[in-house]
């Protein structure tokens, strides 16, 4: 793993109503090509943290990408995979959905056609260009949603519950696919198997604050993580 800092989060706070903070004083450095998994209870702030990093929510504090404070020009460096693929597939054809990002980021028309083809091949769904999203299975939608972000080759992937509601076989294949993509990855997940298998580091978020950060060597097994989570907060 290289040691270049890719994402630096400093004193990040976020609240929806300016009273109750969903994220409190988050400080985290994420290195280039590292995979960081964020685990935690429902409502602990995992998705909100990803949305803040992606610049999709206004927050207090600082998020730096490659040493630069977040700005619109940095958007191209990031790909956000939403929990529900129906939120991310909004165009009438698969082709248009995958081409959406490259078009907005100024890729040339001819190159876009090649990109769409390549992206579909990468996610194992070649020839799906003309399909319409509501004809697809949930697993296929997830893959197309992933294709729609890898199409513009982002350096950072923000993945929100990537394996949620997938069958064991689909989950296995999807994990392989995610692992094969070279990028800095932040994965918000409930699935401890995903955290153990893919994470170089695992971050535990509890009520909007970082409670613990494990390195790969420290995360021994799913059972270890599960037992830790089952302990009362005071015993941890």
């Amino acid at each position: 793993m290289e040691n270049k800092i890719k994402i630096e989060i400093k004193n990040l706070n976020f609240s929806y109503d300016e009273e109750k903070y969903v994220l409190k004083n988050i400080n985290l450095k994420i290195y280039e090509n590292e995979t960081v998994c964020i685990i935690g209870e429902n409502g602990s702030g995992k998705t909100t943290l990803l949305l803040c990093i992606a610049g999709l929510l206004k927050y207090e504090g600082e998020v730096k990408i490659d040493g630069e404070i977040f700005n619109e020009n940095l958007r191209k460096k990031m790909g956000f995979l939403f929990e529900n693929p129906d939120d991310a597939l909004f165009m009438p054809r698969v082709f248009d959905d995958i081409a959406f990002g490259p078009k907005n980021f100024g890729f040339e028309e001819e190159r876009i056609k090649e990109i769409v083809k390549e992206s579909l091949e990468k996610v194992g769904l070649p020839g799906f260009e003309e399909r319409v999203p509501h004809h697809l299975s949930f697993g296929e939608k997830k893959r197309i949603a992933l294709a729609s972000i890898i199409s513009y080759s982002p350096e950072i992937l923000l993945l929100d519950e990537p394996t949620l509601a997938l069958s064991p076989v689909s989950k296995e294949n999807f994990l392989k696919l995610i692992k094969s993509i070279r990028a800095t990855k932040i994965i918000a997940t409930h699935d401890l198997e995903v955290a153990v298998e893919t994470g170089d580091r695992v971050v535990l978020l509890n009520k909007g604050t970082i409670k613990k950060v494990w390195n790969k060597s420290e995360v021994k097994s799913i059972k270890y993580l599960k037992n830790f989570l089952l302990k009362e907060p005071g015993e941890r």
Binding site: L51, K76, M78, F82, D87, F100, N104, F105
Partner: peptide, 16 residues
């Protein structure tokens, strides 16, 4: 709620 999420998905892919 879905429209809010779709808008976020569009913005995250460079839509202005």
């Amino acid at each position: 709620e879905r429209s809010e999420r779709v808008l976020k998905a569009m913005i995250s892919r460079g839509w202005k």
